[in-house]
Every structure is written in structure tokens, then in C-alpha cells.
Design a protein around this nucleic acid. Structure first.
Lengths: 142, 142
DNA sequence: CTGCATGCAAACCGTTTGCATCCCC
DNA sequence: GGGGATGCAAACGGTTTGCATGCAG
């Protein structure tokens, strides 16, 4: 994961290393608070402000993604290629949806209203595999 | 959409009437604070709490939409059919995008990951017509 | 050794809520 | 008249920020 070395602007601190590696090794799309908890296990004296500042810096420099899904707080993603998410309405979990970026939609939308569309975000809602299974087993017990 | 008649639960107060009519006659997707300002012109003694409570009630009952786009605060929409939005990266304005709901995408995504997708939200980003024009006139002055 | 990054705590901002009063039905 | 709705103000939760100190380069 030679993400940081290529951008000399950012100073590599222990806090940053832990945050970035934590996110790269996770698919859980944690909130800032959850990242804070994670980092604290390795660096107990880290401050929440530092976590916020670094999540900001790292996302601004393109090392991570800052996700703003339909809930109060933001989430962070170590996977930075353009992809979509599902938010489970039952448990709140956020999962990746492996659907190729739908550039044709952007093309379709781009003609309308004389706008110039440069990006898009697609958020799915529904049930994650676990909750789906749970729900089905309630309705149809063996 | 006989939404109101079937739900006698909501009491029709002056505050609610002003909020709802204001939203129905607008396409600007105002924030709660902007709705507050609008209502205050008619009911100067209205409280911000009341505005929040009513925006909540009205959206919960399906009379308006609560939008959570990628910015700090939520916006509200008097148009309740499923449609998409563009957020202008230059001026922050939010506009409707008249693109039919892309149900085929949901179908495509639904097979993956064993999820059960029940809804989706599509947010475009780019330049609104005004800002697009402004930008072009800067680059290519006559 | 320089100045960006940190820890700490206070501030911030959008939103929610408790309570006494009001007013719609 | 009764109970939901209001105004007011305080509280809340996530996030940001000012400042003195620390540490990476």
C-alpha cells in the first residue's frame, strides 16, 4: 500500500499511519467515532480532533473517501475507486455494491437543464444479506 | 395521491399551512433555516423549533421530501415524486433532474451481494446553467 | 531547527427536546 | 374542553478550531 509515499506533502505521523492502515484493512465504512475507537487501541492518547483533522486531510488528498450517506454522521472508506453503497435499513451497516459506474446515466442526464454534470453518487437502501436472511427466517420458519 | 384526506392525524395549523404552501410553490429546495426565514415573513413569531417539527411531520407523512445531499444541512422539497437532483459545486444551488427513475439499475444491483434493495438515491454534481454560463464566458470572452 | 501535527478543551452549528401555554377540532 | 401544536430556551451530537507543545523531516 504505497499510498502515502507518492505524495510528499503529507507528513507521515504515527496517527496517520494507524488511521490509514486501519481504513485500508477494513470494509466496514466506519464513522469518525469508530475510527477514533480503533486508533485508540494502538495510540491510547490520540485525540478526537486529530482523528477528524487526519480524516479530512487524507480524504482531501485522495487517500480515502468521505461518505455522506443519509444519516447524521459521515463515514470513511479506504477504497477510493468510484463505487456505490448500500445502507441497510435494518442494522445500519454500509456495504459496497459492485456495480460498474453508470456513466451512461450521467450522459443521459447531462443534456437536460443545460447543466454540466461532472460527478454522481448512487446510494442504495434495503437489507444487507444478514438482515435479509433474518427477515426471511421470521416469515417462513421451518 | 390522496395522502392528506386519509390521514386525519395532522392538525392544520397556520404554521403548517404556510410551510407547506411555501414549499409547494418553490423549486429552490430550501434548508430548514431558509424555510424559517420564509415563514417568518408571514408569521413573525414562529419559532425555529416549530419549523423543524413541522418539516419532520410533513416529511414523515409524505407531504414533502427531506433531502440529505452532500452538505452539512438537510433540504426540503415540495415535489414528492421520486426524482433526482443536481448540486451545483459552484453556487450550492440544488435543481431537479428530470430523468426517469432508473429502476433497471436497481434490478442490476439487486442480484449482487445477496442484498435486498428497496430504494435508491442518485445525486449529480456539477454546474448549474447559470454557473456553467459564467464559467464559459470567463474562459472565452468575446 | 523549522513548522506542520498533536492533545486538549472550548466553541460551533444544525437540530432536537422539555415545558408551560395556546388554539385547532 | 381536550390534546396536539406552539414559542422559548436549553440541550444535544457531530464536527471544528485556537492554542501551547511535540515531533517528523
Amino acid at each position: 500500500m504505497k499510498v502515502i509515499e507518492e505524495k510528499p506533502r503529507i507528513r507521515i505521523t504515527r496517527q496517520r499511519k494507524v488511521i490509514l492502515e486501519g481504513l485500508k484493512n477494513s470494509t466496514s465504512h466506519p464513522t469518525a467515532g469508530e475510527v477514533y475507537d480503533m486508533v485508540r487501541q494502538e495510540l491510547p492518547r490520540v485525540s478526537l480532533g486529530t482523528v477528524y483533522r487526519n480524516l479530512d486531510t487524507l480524504s482531501r488528498d485522495g487517500h480515502i473517501l468521505k461518505l455522506d450517506l443519509d444519516e447524521g454522521q459521515k463515514r470513511f472508506d479506504g477504497r477510493i475507486d468510484h463505487h456505490y453503497h448500500l445502507r441497510c435499513l435494518s442494522c445500519g451497516r454500509v456495504l459496497d455494491i459492485n456495480l460498474d459506474p453508470q456513466t451512461d446515466i450521467v450522459k443521459k442526464a447531462n443534456g437536460m437543464n443545460n447543466c454540466l454534470i461532472t460527478g454522481h453518487k448512487l446510494e442504495f437502501t434495503g437489507l444487507c444479506p444478514q438482515c435479509r436472511r433474518d427477515e426471511e427466517s421470521i416469515k417462513q420458519p421451518n
